[in-house]
Design a protein around this nucleic acid. Sequence first.
DNA 1: CGTCATTACGGAATGCGTAATGATA
DNA 2: TATCATTACGCATTCCGTAATGACG
Lengths: 290, 290
Amino acid sequence: MYTLDQVRCFVAVAEHLHFGRAAVELNMTQPPLSRQIQKLERHVGAELLDRRGRSVELTAAGRLFLTESRKLLGLAERAPEGARRVASGRRGLVRLGFTAAAGFGPLSRLLSTVKDDLPDLDIDLVEMVTAEQLQALDEERIDVALGRLHTPLPHLQSQLLLTERLLLAVPADSELARLDRELVRSDIRGQPIIMHSATKARYFYDIIVGNFEIDPSQVRHSLGQIMTMVSLVAGGHGIAFVPESAERSRIPGVTYLSFSDFREDVVRLHALWRPDSSNPALAAFLSTLR
Amino acid sequence: MYTLDQVRCFVAVAEHLHFGRAAVELNMTQPPLSRQIQKLERHVGAELLDRRGRSVELTAAGRLFLTESRKLLGLAERAPEGARRVASGRRGLVRLGFTAAAGFGPLSRLLSTVKDDLPDLDIDLVEMVTAEQLQALDEERIDVALGRLHTPLPHLQSQLLLTERLLLAVPADSELARLDRELVRSDIRGQPIIMHSATKARYFYDIIVGNFEIDPSQVRHSLGQIMTMVSLVAGGHGIAFVPESAERSRIPGVTYLSFSDFREDVVRLHALWRPDSSNPALAAFLSTLR
DNA sequence: CGTCATTACGGAATGCGTAATGATA
DNA sequence: TATCATTACGCATTCCGTAATGACG
């Protein structure tokens, strides 16, 4: 098989139609250049250059081989660059699991940042609740998750992305909304509540029952998806505890109220990933989180 | 720059995921194969293979580079073949000048033969009279001409393709057609004749004035293109001398009559070309003429 | 006779194969 | 400890550069 160097030699000679000048460009002397061309012609099995007399001309076969040579060299030069980009994680695919609530606040900012820093990085977005995210991470169906966790998990690494307050979503025409002031925790007494599921949204469930006095009779529904809860609030079916970022969802008919006696940033959003991931794109993705 | 051999090595290892078996396929031992891969990785600037422990795996960069490698090798293997085909004339372009009259008989047979023998040979067809053909050959605007010549030209080579009789084209409703028998030369006395131009169709002109008695007053028009003459005959404007192959034109309203006292194959069609042509496709084309 | 491509030849570098080493399960 | 990839080393080949030869205008 001929070598890419021989092809490079041939292209140089074909462009200059002059062995001497081509040799200068290639940083070599004429004799080895001449031999490389001969060798290439022997491998190819056809005369590529017509050296009669003073002038060097391309043969018909040479003209065709020249166009193929340019393709070949272009491909050969681009291929390593692509591989390097993949190896450094600047190019590749990151599969990202996220909760619907995270989709409004931090996710869009995160995606913008990644697109600026790593324009060749593809991101697959998969919406799922935190419990599903953990299983998907375990089965390597996703590379990173944006989820809510109380305690770090042993086999996962995490980084805190965002802390936010807990707000109360109420129907815009409800009596709570008409108060036109910040709430105190006791205001929710007797109100119909659309509650977080103790299994599918354990994180919020624990925060709420730990900080508010909820009477079981208040609970109208138990759901896992925050955005579904907001929809029900908009329909006047009750009130719901939601993180600040849900406020961006722009669902009409919902008012978000804060608590004057409960301002702590108790809702945390973490990025979660397996430290043993073999995806080089993940490392690059994570580096943009900082 | 890395070599195609290194790429070939990489593809073999990537396919077997095993240095030993890949080395067998490449007819070499493991150590040089290992070194070639290392060298390739150094040139590429990224790890392509993940040799941890027992098993060899492709890295993400390696997977991308593998697809590029296959493209590269495919291109590198096809390029010489294309060049060889061009060099041998099996592929290329022949520009063929032909007279309209030649287009009906020998040309279509010739093209069929060429398409069978040389499927990758493109043929540009350019219709022109013999005088134009000679100039086009001289200026290398065409490679070969199908023309009519009395005497060989010094700077051109030629081959006789066809000999045919001279027929008389007459309007189907003329008195000559109604004779319903072969003609003798004296039958044309007094008939209106559509004559060949002495300059643009010198070949036919010479044959006709050398074998028939034409009174200048009989000549209605002087033309260079035989098919135009046949059209005029169809329109009832006179009679015309044409080669046998014109009979295939199927222009309605024209009858072709032979002469019982002039049966010789006087009309010759030659292929003409420059012996110093640099077009390798021409040689292949000419070889199919025999 | 001057220019440009090609052969001739000596030295350096590269590459293969055999043998030894290292790492992993 | 057995297998597989990598390093060590000796030998052959390849390739470069300088010098000589050849061809064309």
